[in-house]
Design a binder for these strands. Structure first.
Lengths: 132, 132
DNA sequence: TTAGGTGCAAAACCTTTGCCATCCC
DNA sequence: GGGATGGCAAAGGTTTTGCACCTAA
């Protein structure tokens, strides 16, 4: 059975209170503010448990570092090619597409992830700047 | 300026001759058959140069390991959640979607990546089996 | 000639894991 | 009580980098 612990609850709460699709490391730093002795291993282990529970999902369409978000209704993302930030896009998810492709290919399709790429509004107006 | 070298040419040729979306390590092993003393650093460096040239693109599908492919016309992918393999899907890319979302959001969108998730045909018929 | 490229090995990074103490049910 | 979880540190695996030596243009 999976138990309630302060660590797990804190990690989930942090994820639910941000729209920033953070990395494990950022979550770790945030969690440390509440639980100073929390360890990275704990963060990673809990992120995995929460994924298995279906409460968290991992975004991996780009980049070497994994990013996480509290699971909500499926939605699309936008990733800025300059600053690396990830935003939600409120374009409705095309679920018909899954059925259509499944039927034609014989694959069993459970969902799809879609990520737009380009320049966010901040980066369109900046000539220089750091990546985060 | 970027030069032509045997190493770079070999890496690109290997990528162009497969549809398997290989990892850097697999490319390294293949390249070693032709250039026994090639190093992994060279493979990684060239994959990056080829990406900057727009000849190769990187897929970060399952978190830790990057996978690469020779750049072709934009297309969608399917990833099997059981065996981890990646397939191309020949569903036409919806380029109108980029313009539509760009117009509504003010983001500058250059493209989008889409990945279906589910079970491939092999894994639908197997009860057990290893992930590759 | 010379800036870019290579090989090698070490470093850097992110993530996982072993071990033992601790905590939740 | 006993299995699940946490903290710590070490291990694991991928990618990057420093450096001295090449090599294509």
């Amino acid at each position: 059975m999976t138990r309630h612990t302060k660590q797990r609850e804190t990690i989930l709460r942090i994820l639910r209170s941000t729209r920033s699709h953070p990395t494990a490391d950022w979550i770790y730093e945030e969690a440390k503010k509440e639980i100073p002795h929390i360890s990275k291993g704990t963060v990673y282990r809990n992120l995995r448990v929460l994924q298995e529970n279906g409460q968290v999902s991992e975004l991996n369409l780009d980049g070497t570092v994994s990013r996480f978000e509290a699971k909500r209704q499926n939605h699309y993302h936008f990733r800025c090619e300059r600053c690396g930030r990830v935003f939600d896009v409120d374009e409705p998810v095309d679920t018909k597409l899954d059925r259509k492709v499944a039927k034609r290919t014989g694959l069993r399709i459970s969902c799809h992830q879609l990520e737009f790429r380009g320049l966010c509004q901040d980066c369109q107006h900046e000539q220089t700047g750091r990546r985060e």
